[in-house]
Design a protein around this nucleic acid. Structure first.
Length: 561
DNA sequence: AGTTTCGGCGCC
DNA sequence: AAAGGGCGCCGAAACT
């Protein structure tokens, strides 16, 4: 057996490697070699590298020009397996897993570092959690057995493999960076904000708008200070609770227009302005750090530069290299299609089995052709909307697609009752009570005192936070299963790109960008379709549900929509 | 002075 | 009466 090998960087700068047998333990001697990259490059026959942490190892390999086909990230798998067992808050390092296995004291996880501009930070400090290879594979072999004890072992194995693949994608995207024209960015900033003044103060346009706000109030008001703005409105006889745009816009006062404009531009200035450009763009690329599986739902996060929140106007600066193109691919109505696949609702599967607009088809069946109402209803069901037209629309949706609505209702009830909720592949939502990580991860906790409530769901005893947990769980099964599917999609697309010059440069929940030579765009578009088909089949098994993409071949990201 | 939380808003 | 999920980022405010 030479298909699986384990690898462990040694403290002396070398690396330990060993072929693994069927039981996950070394099938032969553990060898020490001086050069990590050479050890991997010299073994092209290895189908999967087993290592502690992709973030520790793979950037070093990529820096040496070495790519791997597949890997297995032990600490990521530990996180998923602990979660599946309902032990969400326990330390997830390989050292902790080994200690649990051997019954020793379990070390806490090392703290994570915040991202700094221009530097890439591994998830764990590598040196503080080093394990020799023989210890590491002991954890690995145990994890293989633990997969078998899960509700769906095949799915769980697919999940850990898929997320490891996601980590390879993330590391490669971090290395590639997103093509970025600093010159275009500066031009956009100048058009929106006007000239910069010496000393780093507000640019001209913001200063003008601040003056207009002050003039409207009849005194000096700083529009970037909510407390100041609220006070100024109060003095004008208008009570506002906050300075949120939707609240301010309902007020009739001459300060509103310049204030709203100020806030919009201020946001661009502080979050994506000249200092952002200075911090995050080097050599024509924006280099955030993508982190696969950074959230409990499995969605990715980024560290640095707000890469998942690039404002539409700033996307003008994302420009392909000369002779190259951006293939921008957006999954159409991903969440309702995923709901169809996981709930097996016959009506919704039928609708999601076509590649045409899903919301239109839903509205034809349940909302007399009103697409907007249909979309609100579907999203309301997924997000747990409880007010306004949501309840009325939800009733119509429930009549026509009962299994789909029941699926998210069941998840919500499980969440409220503190039971575990899982995605299709087995990623598990932290329970509300007892898990130290749950609160830290943003899961609403129990209120000290539960109080009775009456609402559209009938009378009952449920705290605000209990309800919030229900909504969280409701959304979790859909958003998380969608994340399961996108991992398989990315893995397939990555392999296709590797057969060309194409590079994956951006991923945002349901949207990918591939940067490739002009002559490869057709092949990339085809590869996206094939990857989607494969991901759907691998993730959900035999299902009529289709996952179509809208693709655009452009030189500039802003032209994609 | 340094660190954490808040308010607001960007994206999906 | 209010009642939508997930994130990151910034400066200011609030804390130690």
């Amino acid at each position: 057996m030479t298909d699986r090998w384990a690898l462990a960087p040694a403290e002396d700068g070398g690396v330990e490697v060993a072929a693994l047998g069927p039981d996950g333990l070394p099938a032969g001697p553990v060898r020490w070699e001086a050069d990590l990259a050479a050890a991997v490059r010299g073994r092209p026959e290895v189908a999967r590298w087993v290592w502690r942490s992709t973030a520790e190892v793979y950037p070093r390999l990529l820096a040496a020009g070495v790519r791997v086909e597949r890997c297995y990230d032990i600490e990521d798998a530990e996180t998923l397996l602990l979660g599946h067992a309902g032990r969400y808050g326990e330390p997830r390092s390989a050292a902790a897993a080994l200690a649990r296995l051997r019954g020793g004291p379990v070390p806490p996880d090392p703290p994570q570092r915040a991202a700094e501009p221009g530097s890439q930070s591994p998830l764990f400090e590598p040196q503080s959690v080093h394990l020799p290879l023989t210890d590491l594979v002991e954890v690995y072999a145990d994890q293989q057995r633990r997969h078998d004890t899960t509700a769906h072992p095949d799915r769980m194995r697919l999940l850990t493999a898929a997320e490891s693949a996601g980590m390879l994608v993330a590391a490669e995207m971090n290395r590639a960076g997103l093509p970025w024209s600093a010159e275009t960015h500066r031009r956009v900033l100048h058009e929106l904000l006007g000239e910069r003044y010496a000393g780093g103060g507000e640019p001209r346009r913001l200063a003008e708008l601040a003056d207009q706000v002050s003039e409207a109030f009849g005194r000096r008001v700083r529009p970037d200070l909510p407390a100041d703005v609220i006070k100024a409105f109060a003095q004008a006889g208008i009570k506002v609770k906050s300075t949120r745009r939707w609240e301010i816009e309902s007020v009739d006062h001459p300060a509103v227009k310049p204030l709203v404009e100020y806030k919009k531009l201020y946001r661009i200035w502080v979050a994506h302005g000249w200092s952002w450009l200075q911090d995050w763009v080097r050599d024509g690329r924006f280099r955030p750090e993508f982190l696969a599986g950074g959230t409990v739902t499995g969605r990715w996060v980024t560290n640095g530069g707000g890469a998942l929140q690039i404002p539409k106007v700033i996307r003008r600066a994302v420009v392909a290299d000369p002779g190259w193109r951006l293939v921008v691919a957006d999954a159409d109505q991903m969440e309702p299609r995923v709901l169809a696949a996981i709930s097996r609702d016959p009506g919704l599967m039928e609708v999601a089995g076509r590649e045409t607009d899903l919301y239109q088809a839903v509205s034809d069946r349940a909302f007399s052709g009103d697409r907007g109402q249909a979309k609100l209803a579907v999203l309301g069901a997924v997000y747990g909307q409880t007010s306004g037209d949501g309840l009325k629309n939800l009733a119509a949706l429930r009549r026509r697609f009962p299994k789909a609505v029941a699926y998210v209702d069941d998840a919500a009830r499980a969440g409220e009752e503190g039971r575990l909720v899982r995605t299709w592949l087995g990623r598990t939502c932290p329970p509300a009570a007892g898990a130290g990580d749950a609160e830290e991860a943003g899961i609403p906790q129990d209120d000290p005192v539960e109080r009775p409530v009456e609402d559209g769901w009938g009378p009952g005893y449920a705290s605000t936070n209990t309800r919030a947990r229900g909504r969280f769980a409701r959304n979790f099964v859909v958003q998380g299963s969608a994340a399961d599917w996108t991992l398989l999609l990315l893995a397939a697309l990555r392999q296709a790109c590797a057969r060309m010059s194409a590079e994956l440069v951006f991923f945002q929940h349901d949207e990918v960008i591939v940067h490739c030579p002009e002559e490869e765009t057709e092949a990339v578009v085809a590869a996206i379709g094939e990857a989607s088909e494969l991901a759907g089949r691998l993730t959900f098994g035999e299902t009529p549900v289709r996952f179509p993409f809208t693709t655009a071949v452009v030189e500039c990201y802003a032209d994609a929509k």
